[in-house]
Every structure is written in structure tokens, then in C-alpha cells.
Computed example of a mutant assay.
Amino acid sequence: MGTDLFTSARGPGLIGTILAVIVLGGFLTLYLLVFGEDFQGGGKTIEYTIQEDEKTLARLEKNVAEARNEAERIEGYTETVDQLIRLEARSKATKKDLLDLESQLITFEAKAQKARESLDNYKQSYRESARAALLGKKYATLTTAQGRTYNDVSVKDIDAARVQIRHASGITGIGLEDLPEDIKEFLQIDEAETLARLEAEEKERKIRGLNTAINERAYRISRLEAELTASKDAISTAERKIANNTNAIPILESQLTSKRSELSQHESKAATGGISNAPQIRAQIKALEAKILDAERNIKLLNLTIAKEQQEAANYEEQIEAERKKLESEAESRGQTAEELE
């Protein structure tokens, strides 16, 4: 049902009026049934008529009860709708207040952020001007917070982390936190800025250290590669010598066989009293035999040299591979540190 129906059905007076109309209508109908001639049923007995009237009265009472229940239900709905309307109105008002507060909060936060930025800018400007004012300043003596004293001091340089001074004994860097209290108060040191500067310097130091390590490792790799190349060259040279000696042996053996045959012929001439060159031929045979032995010995020595150089080459290759992995790791660390520094 709509809100108009709920509104029109409010109040116990209206409900009572509805019930009274229904009851009066019921009694009027009962009266007509009992006493009206047109409703006597044309020949029906009075007992039958009374029974019919009782049924009609029961129906009317049921209708009255249903009407009363409906009226009460309508009144309950009306109260619920009123409550919902009031809650909805309160909700709208609350939402409006919330929007107003959120708008005020945003405005306040913007103003507060701007004020903080202005204050930070002012502080930074002051620190920069204070550092500039301290630069070149001279002190007869300067004692640090840790108790170390310097004489004939002049401020040579200053940044967010330290002051560099020239003094009677040389040049020294002093951390800002180690300065005397009056100088620290004048500089208005920002601990966060100092910490950031120190962290940046530490990362730069790490990068320099990694660069040095990378350069040294690259140099070691180049030396190992040179040694590897030398070993491979030695192997190639030994293999060429083996091939030369191997090829020379058959030639020497053929010459030796020829000389032995020639010696046999000269020995036969000497036996018959002819002229013989047997001594010279024997010397040539010994020389050929020595050459063959030298060639065979050289082949053995060269094979040993090849085996040794191959082992050394394998060791160089393993070392080069290990050094390259370390170099990659150091380069990766340097890249990560550089990214952090940025």
C-alpha cells in the first residue's frame, strides 16, 4: 500500500470508526434477516432462520476481526514508514556533514602540506647559508665533541656530512656530529640529510671498490687468457715438432739401411785388399743411428710437453671460467648499488 493509505489509516479513532461501521452493518443485516418479511424465506421455519442468522453473524464477526487486524497492520506499517523517512532524512544530513568535513580536511591537509614544504625550504635555505657563512672561517683552536683539539683552524670545505679543515698539522675531515655544540647549533644540522649523505657516500665507496675489484679481476682474466694462449701455442709447436720427427725417422732409417749395405760392400773390398771407406761409413751409420734416437727421444719429450701443456690449459680455462663468474657477480652488485644510489 502507498504512503497516502498509511497516512489516512493512522490513529485509533479512525480504526474505531471503521469497526463501528462494520458492526452496525452486520446488525442491520441480522435485523433484516430475522424480522424482515422479505427475508423470512417464504415458508422456512424460525429455527432454520435463526441458524442461518447465526452463521451470518459468525461471518460478520470474522470480518470484523480481520478488519481490526488489517487496521492494526496498516498502523504498524505507517509507523515503520515514518521511522524510515526520519532515518533517511538523518542519513542525508549525516552524509552532507561528512562531505563538508571531508572537504574541510582536504583543504586543511593541503594547507598543512604547503606549510611543511615552506618550513622545509626555509630550513634548507638557512642550512645552506649557514654552511656558506662557515666556509673560510678561522679558529685559533677547535675541540671536537670527542675531545680532539686542532690549532690554527680554517674551514676549507663543508657538506651535509662533514667539515674539512686545514690546521697546523695538515688537513682533516670532521663529521658534523663531532663538531662543537655551538657550531652544530649554528649549522642546524639535519640528521636525516646527514644520514642520507653518509649512505650515498658509502654506496659510492662500494661502487669504487667494486670497480677496482672488477678491473683487477679483468686483469687476472687477461693474464690467464695469455697463459692459456701460450700453452696452446706450446702444444701446437710440440705437435709440429713431433710430426717433423715422425716424418724424419723413416728417412733416417732408409739412409741407415743404405749405409749399412754400403759398409758391407766396403768391408768385402777390404778383405780382398782393395781400397775401403769402411771407417767413414761406420761413422756415418753412428750419426744416423744417433739422429734416429734423438728423434724418438724428442717425440717422447714432446708428448710429455703436450700432456703438461694440456693440463695447464685446462687449469687456465677453469680459472678463467671461475673468474668470469665472479666478474659477473661483481658487475651485478655494482649495478644494484648504482641503482640504489640513484
Rank of each mutant, 00 (worst) to 15 (best):
Ile183Cys: 05
Arg205Ser: 13
Glu128Ile: 09
Ile207Ser: 05
Glu37His: 07
Thr194Ser: 13
Ile235Val: 15
Leu60Val: 15
Glu79Tyr: 04
Arg208Ser: 10
Ile165Met: 03
Asn151Cys: 06
Leu304Trp: 04
Leu301Thr: 15
Asn151Pro: 01
Lys232Cys: 00
Glu109Ser: 08
Ala271Gly: 06
Leu57Arg: 06
Ala238Ile: 11
Arg59Ala: 12
Lys308Ala: 15
Lys259Gly: 08
Tyr150Gln: 01
Lys44Cys: 05
Glu88Arg: 02
Arg148Glu: 12
Ala234Tyr: 09
Leu57Ser: 06
Phe186Gly: 11
Glu317Asp: 12
Arg116His: 09
Glu309Trp: 00
Arg240Asp: 07
Asn215Tyr: 10
Lys55Trp: 03
Lys55Cys: 00
Thr29Pro: 02
Ala278Tyr: 02
Ala287Met: 07
Leu288Ala: 03
Glu128Ser: 08
Ile281His: 00
Ala271Cys: 08
Ala307Ile: 08
Ala234Arg: 12
Thr229Leu: 07
Ala161His: 02
Glu117Gly: 08
Gly273Gln: 04
Leu24Met: 08
Glu102Pro: 00
Asp294His: 12
Glu47Met: 12
Ala93Trp: 02
Pro250Ala: 03
Ala200Cys: 04
Pro250Val: 07
Arg162Asp: 02
Asn247Trp: 00
Ile292Cys: 02
Gln104Arg: 11
Gly335Trp: 00
Tyr139Ser: 05
Tyr77Leu: 07
Leu302Thr: 01
Lys291Gly: 15
Lys206Ala: 14
Ala218Val: 03
Pro12Val: 03
